[in-house]
Structures are given as C-alpha cells and as structure tokens.
Design a protein around this nucleic acid. Structure first.
Lengths: 250, 250
DNA sequence: TTGGTTATGATTGTTTTTGATTATTTTTGA
DNA sequence: TCAAAAATAATCAAAAACAATCATAACCAA
C-alpha cells in the first residue's frame, strides 16, 4: 500500500472512530508497525491527528468536528456531491434503507426534517441519525465487532420484514460482467436483500469503483441505479446498456 | 482501551449522570481502578471534572444534597454482587439474553472467556461486550434515541426468533399483586417476550425495588426468579410463596 | 542495467503505561 | 469520639508501546 493511500486510510479510520490503535491500523493497511509509526509521526507534524500512547486520536477541535477527515477522505468532494444528489431523491414520508459506509453517512445531515423513516444495519450511523432527529430502525443480527455492522442469517431475517421506497448502498466494485461486488460475503448478502426489498435501489459510487471487482457478488447491474460523479463518457457508455447511470456534475 | 478513549468515555458518562463512581468507570472501560484514578486526577488537572470521594462529578455542579453513591448509582455494591451472582449461573456455551440497564451492564466484565452468546436490545451495551470479546447479537427494532434501546413491534418480532438458556433483566417494580413492572410500555413488551423465550428468567433487583409498582406490567412474579441483595426476611417471606427468591449475601 | 535514493520491516534497548500491592487518609456508623 | 470500613495515594514489577538503528527491498533516473 502506497504512502498517501495509507495516510488517507488512517485519517479515514480516525474520522469514523476518533481513536485508533496502531494494531488496528497495521491490520487495516497490511503494513508493519514501524511504518504506521512513521506515518503517525508525519501526520502529527502535519497537524492531521494527535499521537497518543498506543495509537492516535483526532485533534479535538470540536467546532470543526470532521473537517480533517472529510477533506482527507479519498474523493471527498465527489462523495459529498453524490450524497447530496441521493438525498434530493428522498421525499417526505419515504421509508429508506441506508447501508453502512462513508458515502451513506454523508447523506444523513441532508435528511434532516424530511420526516422519513430510516432502516439501517450500521450501528456507526446511529449517532448521526439521532443527532439529526431521524426516526431510525436498526435491523437485528450478529454484531461484527470490527466494522460495527449487523450481519448473518438473523440480520437477513430481520431485514426481510421491511419494505423500502428507496435503498442507498455503497459498493466496492462495479463491473460489466461481475456486476456489483463487495469484499465481505456476509455484508454482500445483506446488501443483496436490501436491493430486492426496495422499489428503487441506488448504488452510490465514485468513479474509482468502476471496472473493479471485489470478492463477493451483491447483485447484477440491472438491479440498481448507479449514482456517480464525473467520469469518462465511454465508461458510462459501457454501463448504460446494463443499467441506468446518473452522473452528478460539478 | 486507549487513554483518550477512556477520557472521552468518562466525560460522556459524566455528561449523562453528572456523578459517577470509580467502580462504574472501571466496568465501563474494562480497565483497573488504578488507571481510572490516574485518569480522574489528570482530567481534574485539566478542569474537565471534579474528583469527589468515591468517584467524580461535573465541575460546576451545585448539587450537594446527595452523596456520590446516592446520586450516581444507588446501591452500587449490592448491584455488583447481584451481577456477580448472576454471572456464576451462566455456563460455558450458554446463550443468554441481556436486558438494558445498569445491573446487567455490570454483568458483562464477568462474562469474559465464558464462550457464550449474548443477545441484547441495548445498544449501549455493545461497547462493553465488544471490549470483552463476547459474541453478540443485537435484536432489531426502533431505536429509542433517549435510552438507546431497541423497542417496538419489529423488536418483538426480531427477538422472537431467538431462544435462550437464561435471561437476565433489570426491573423497576416488584410487587405482590402487580408483579414485575417497568415505566415504559414498549420496553415492558420486550422484557415480557424475553422471559417467555427463556428456559430460566432472572430478575436482577436490589432491595429498593420491592413493594414498588411502575407503569407497565412485564410479567407475573412466578414467571421469573428474583436475584436480590440482603433484605428483611419478612420481605422474602412475602414473595417466596409466589416465586423463587435468591438472596446474595455479603 | 547500474548507482543512488527512499521506503520498509525486523531488531534492539528505552520509556511509558498499567494493574497489583501496600500504606495512608477519609468516611461511616456505632 | 473512636474503630472499622472504604477510598485514596504511593510504590513497584511486568507488560506494552516507543524511538533508534540497520539491513534489505523497492524505486527511480541516468
């Protein structure tokens, strides 16, 4: 993993958790302890974070909250635009499903005062949802302690009792033949079900996800509408036979 | 748990309760008394809180009427003993249901390394459960933003797909005629179902809960075994016709 | 390719943190 | 008021995390 990529990853993890251990980062980046230490030292010099014994924490400037994280996250601006666009699709009274993930997290502030009902499998979204006074249902399931998401057969069963006007999912890979894919089989199963329970399913994905394939298949391309940012016309051309692609322009 | 994480947790707990005992913090953070003391000293130097005998309180707090124990958590010692006793009932391989509440929270540290499966409706328990590496299922349902518990018909439905070896519940009122009662009707419904899904149900209640009645009925006395601390023999005498009462002595 | 540079990961000794223990102080209740 | 109990502070050894160092691997330009 390349240095800038690692740095982004570190800041991203911090944005979600606000405190992180070196060990967790070693695992997340597949690099050694020494490397992570060097990274942390450098990021500290750049004032991106604060080192603490055992790991790192956000520099607590409460007013700015996630600014460092939001800026540092890969393709932050694009994701924000995609999130904004997605929220414009949500209408008063809708019942929607929000997947775990950073782009869907960005949707939450824009959902305030829409009088909607949100169903989610992301424990990490609860704080933001509660903050913005959004009526929230959590599906049941096994708590995956690393990602704080709910998975497993009980999650599937729990989810299957809902129906959604719209479903918004993040995705790791979008590929002409492989369709929509994501690294974790259990999470893939949850995503798949969410799609089939919705009237309309939307995949929120920036341009880096196209032509990529991950481990577990979630669905065929035609099962969901893709919302993405500016990409080459020929990429869109490739995909638009298979499904609707909506491009959020600047 | 990293230092800033602990500090954040301490401040968070204080924000909710305004006074807290060292023991509560020891359990909430899964660290030792010594460590918590050092944390409190440091946070006091930073003017984040004020140390008081037995724990800590918010700085600009004008409530002097009650002692730490009375305000923070009544009968902390008794609850600890009750929690300890309850955990001794749990056997390797058991699948148990843990209700929301302070006494059940106290059980978590003692459940470590028991290789059990925990099902809960308490989002606020997840941190401690994860910290102690306990396999955890969360039931689904409406997120009650105040108490961070899962309630409602979907919680009922989600819960009903589990079966338990043992169920441990907190309770607000235990009364000869009114039976087990609690303030919130929705939470009462969840508790009631949990009892009926278990082979054995235990109510964890210190002596202050006896002869009290709250708003919503959870169950009849004979539906669960009561675990309590030292109380007058005549109180036990009153109840033991109706159900089994186990008294945890000092 | 080659030579020079940089990044990486293992290893070392050092420092910090932690939790247990002990002694001291404070609180409680008779 | 005094003695017992609880909470605190001080101390210390063990564990964890740290910085420094170094050899190796990857990279880059000529």
């Amino acid at each position: 993993m390349l240095t800038p990529e690692r740095h982004r990853k570190i800041i991203e993890v911090l944005g979600e958790k606000s405190v992180v251990t070196i060990q967790e980062l070693v695992e997340a980046t597949a690099s050694s302890e020494s490397t992570i230490r060097r990274d942390l030292s450098q990021l500290q010099r750049e004032k991106k974070l604060k080192r603490v014994h055992g790991g790192a924490s956000l520099t607590h400037q409460k007013s700015e909250e996630l600014s460092v994280f939001e800026k540092s996250e890969r393709n932050a601006l694009e994701k924000e635009k995609i999130a904004q666009y997605a929220c414009d699709l949500v209408q008063t009274g809708d019942c929607i499903y929000l997947d775990a993930g950073t782009t869907t997290l960005r949707m939450i502030p824009h959902l305030k005062n829409k009088e909607i009902t949100v169903v989610t499998n992301a424990i990490s979204h609860l704080e933001a949802l509660s903050e913005h006074e959004i009526k929230t249902y959590l599906i049941g399931g096994l708590v995956k302690s690393k990602t704080k998401a709910l998975v497993g057969s009980s999650a599937i069963k729990s989810l299957s009792s809902y129906r959604f006007d719209k479903v918004f999912l993040g995705m790791n890979g979008i590929h002409i033949e492989a369709g929509f894919t994501t690294p974790d089989p259990e999470e893939a199963a949850v995503k798949n079900l969410a799609i089939s329970l919705s009237q309309k399913a939307f995949i929120l994905a920036d341009h880096t996800k196209f032509h990529e394939t991950s481990f577990s298949k979630v669905a065929e391309l035609n099962e969901a509408i893709i919302i993405t940012d500016d990409i080459d016309d020929d990429v869109i051309y490739d995909f638009q036979d298979k499904t609707e692609v909506r491009v959020v322009t600047s």
